[in-house]
Amino acid sequence: MKLVIGGYGQGKLQYVLRKYQLEETAVWDGVLPEEKEIQTKGVVVNHFHQWVRQSLLQGKSPEDMARAFVERHGDCIIICDEIGNGIVPVEAFEREYRERTGRILIQLAKEAEEVERVICGIGQKIK
C-alpha cells in the first residue's frame, strides 16, 4: 500500500495517476470499494479523509474498516488531505474527526511501503 498526503489543491490525484500510469476508472472518490466493484488494475482511494468523516458520522469505526481494506488490497494507493494544520475547531465532532484522521494516517503510514507528501504538485518521498 502506498500513502499520499498533502494539502487541499496540491495536485495529489494527478500526481498519482501520472506516476503510476493509472486511468481515472481506478479512482474511488471518498469510498472504500467492495471487492466485487473493482474491475481495474490498481485501486486508488481519493479523498480518504472524506471517507473517514462519513464513517464517523455514521457511528462506524474507520480504524477497523481501513485496516481490513488495506489487508485485502495490498496494492492500493490511498490519497488523503492534510487536515490537521489549522485552528482547533469549535465543534467537538470536528476536533474528533481531525484527531482520528491523523491517528489513522499514522497507522497507515506505518504499514505503507511508501509514503509521499505532495506540495505544489511535487512529490516528496518521506518514507
Binding site: 492534510e82 487536515i83 490537521g84 494544520n85 489549522g86 482547533v88 476536533r95 481531525r98 484527531e99 482520528r100 484522521t101 491523523g102 491517528r103 494516517l105 499514522i106
Partner: peptide
C-alpha cells in the same frame, strides 16, 4: 511542529 494527530 505538526498538526493534530500527527504524532508530534
Amino acid at each position: 511542529i505538526g498538526g493534530s494527530g500527527s504524532g508530534k
